[in-house]
Design a protein around this nucleic acid. Sequence first.
DNA 1: CATCTAATTAGATGATCGCCGAATTAGCGG
DNA 2: CCGCTAATTCGGCGATCATCTAATTAGATG
Lengths: 200, 200
Amino acid sequence: MPAEVATLVAFFKALADTTRLRIVGLLAVEERSVDEIATLVDVRPPTVSHHLSKLKKLGLVSVRSEGNTRWYRLELDAVEKLAREVLAGDGLTSIGDEVEAAAEDAYALKVMQTFMEGERITQLPRQWRKKLVLVRYVAQQFEADRTYSEAEIKAVIAPIYPDHVTLRRLMIDVKWMLRDKAGRAYRLNPERLAELRGSP
Amino acid sequence: MPAEVATLVAFFKALADTTRLRIVGLLAVEERSVDEIATLVDVRPPTVSHHLSKLKKLGLVSVRSEGNTRWYRLELDAVEKLAREVLAGDGLTSIGDEVEAAAEDAYALKVMQTFMEGERITQLPRQWRKKLVLVRYVAQQFEADRTYSEAEIKAVIAPIYPDHVTLRRLMIDVKWMLRDKAGRAYRLNPERLAELRGSP
DNA sequence: CATCTAATTAGATGATCGCCGAATTAGCGG
DNA sequence: CCGCTAATTCGGCGATCATCTAATTAGATG
């Protein structure tokens, strides 16, 4: 299973402080007491205690009591496990997918609100990705399981956007629609119908 | 060369924010514009710009201009390189060494200030590591290249700490001092003289 | 039981930092 | 050259967080 965003952020936060990273460094060498750490990194013991409790909560560090001094040690396995997730190659990519999946709809919606007014496209965006959103919207206006003549295509598109030729060409470039190689018949690409209906 | 503390902290800081990590995730999949990112992670463009500039300053991200939109991409090499330093096994350890080297003196000083008064040891600390500091101090009071009888040892230690027997035994346990196996002669361990003179 | 030491908790302060809205700059098209 | 879009910069607000001192808990010692 890929890394959760929240988990990774927590991990990075833990090491994103000079004092805390130095403490972790010390514990990577050998176990140490709060008091030792305090003098070695030059902060007061309460501060060290505070940092250690954070690290402990994440399982990066463990304690052993002896008398009334407490010996802290680094849980190297936990550290390496998390660090490895970042390296995993698709570790970051999977975060990207996660974000996209959650927000692709919102993006399409925003683009449509910007470049359309009701059912009509007011202007074609210049950015390719935004253009795609509108082309997809137009393609959704066609029915599956039938063919369209050039005139019929125009009849559907023109009310949405005057320059129907451009939009027809775009639909074909992007392969939402196929052109019959023999004559002048068009039809929706049957292989991508599900894709066209689904939200993304 | 091992990782600098400051470098690593900067790296962790960069990824230690949910929004920023999600942005990095998106860029790990494909290059994106500020505007797209803004809608996908649901913050205003100025915020995205702000984050991207931070990432760029660290070289984790690069830009390409096209018209007046700017396409950001992730520098995967840079990310992996830094992440690998953490995993390097001795990556964290080397930080520990760095901290120790810089502060071991301070630690010894503090221990001595706590448990000594002038030239005299007021009390022997219970923590082993603290005890070591004082034992080392005592060992430094002896001359190299000569031997000591038991009485002479006592003559050196007693003014510093009444229980000279304990301290003598400690010096031997820790191997600052050697006991002649035949008789009753003691001398500093010649193999560790340099260590005894140097500050740590 | 009184005392000492090690550590933690509590409360306060100051700095950092993410986020936003408003204003500004840069590129493009009529 | 004016208007539009994309992006950045600026100033400010609010939250988070590292750090400190002071007070408290827990162990060990005599």
